[in-house]
């Protein structure tokens, strides 16, 4: 192909645009390298397109060039080969790694200690919870028994018998609640003094005062420890009077009359 025909074919325009196959590109390069005329034509075409492309370019930010040159320098100085022997940078990276390791260990120890302390706290709270639960259970029991007592006392069939002092201890007093329907007996002994060591109060009910026929209604055990000092006694369906005597621990078969504290007749 003659040079002018080559130029007129439009192949060089395609070559500058990169619009040919790889083989065609290689072929044209060879041809150009053999002909100064072709080479000059290619340069003209390139310049023409470059000038045309420039017309499409708005002004570029002034900072972009510096940024590109800086990035280029950074790439040039950054070792990319992984087999590079240790450099200052690698030492820095190792140092940093070690620093992170130490920091990590320290953090783990701190976390462990925090965890231990938290576990201890949990144990304390759990034991406190147990105590509260026990307390609550006791209170619930107390409440239930008080409710039961209250229910018993407010019954119309419940008689209230005041037991007054018979001179042994001035001002001593007790109140017996006796439900004649259920036969249940409760005694409020809160106005009695605490019994001396080795002694216990004992409640009696009498089916007759003359002749005196007392029956054991039970001992008021655990008097000192009892907060409200209300005691349930053995039930009866007939009684004309109630009395409380002080007896040796464990109670007596028959009342010790010298130690009669309070006495009250059923009205």
């Amino acid at each position: 192909m003659k040079i002018q025909e080559y130029i007129d074919s439009g192949l060089l325009e395609m070559y500058v645009a990169g619009a040919l196959t790889e083989q065609e590109m290689v072929k044209v390069t060879t041809d150009i390298n053999e002909s100064l005329e072709l080479k000059q034509e290619v340069e003209k075409l390139e310049n023409a397109f470059m000038a045309y492309a420039k017309l499409h370019a708005p002004p570029i930010s002034a900072a972009l060039k510096a940024s590109i040159l800086q990035s280029g320098r950074n790439i040039a100085t950054t070792p990319t080969d992984v087999t590079t022997p240790p450099t200052g940078l690698n030492k820095w990276i190792c140092g940093l790694g070690l620093l992170f390791l130490v920091a990590s260990i320290g953090y783990n120890i701190y976390q462990y200690q925090t965890k231990q302390s938290l576990e201890q706290n949990i144990e304390t709270v759990e034991s406190e919870n147990e105590t509260f639960a026990n307390d609550l259970e006791a209170l619930q029991e107390k409440y239930n028994s008080n409710q039961a007592l209250f229910a018993e006392i407010r019954q119309p069939s419940t008689k209230r018998v005041v037991l007054a002092s018979v001179g042994k201890v001035a001002g001593a007093e007790a109140i017996v609640f006796w439900n004649t329907d259920t036969k249940n007996i409760f005694v409020d002994a809160s106005s009695l003094p605490e019994p001396p060591e080795g002694k216990v109060y004992q409640l009696w009910w009498m089916i007759s005062l003359d002749p005196l026929l007392p029956n054991n209604a039970g001992t008021l055990d655990g008097f000192a420890a009892d907060d409200d000092k209300v005691f349930a006694a053995l039930s009866t369906d007939r009684a004309v009077a109630f009395a409380i005597t002080l007896e040796p621990e464990g109670g007596s078969e028959s009342p010790t009359l010298e130690e009669l504290y309070v006495l009250g007749q059923v009205s």
Partner: peptide
């Protein structure tokens, strides 16, 4: 080349 390439 920057202006031409930017134009493209």
């Amino acid at each position: 080349y920057s202006l031409s390439l930017f134009g493209v």
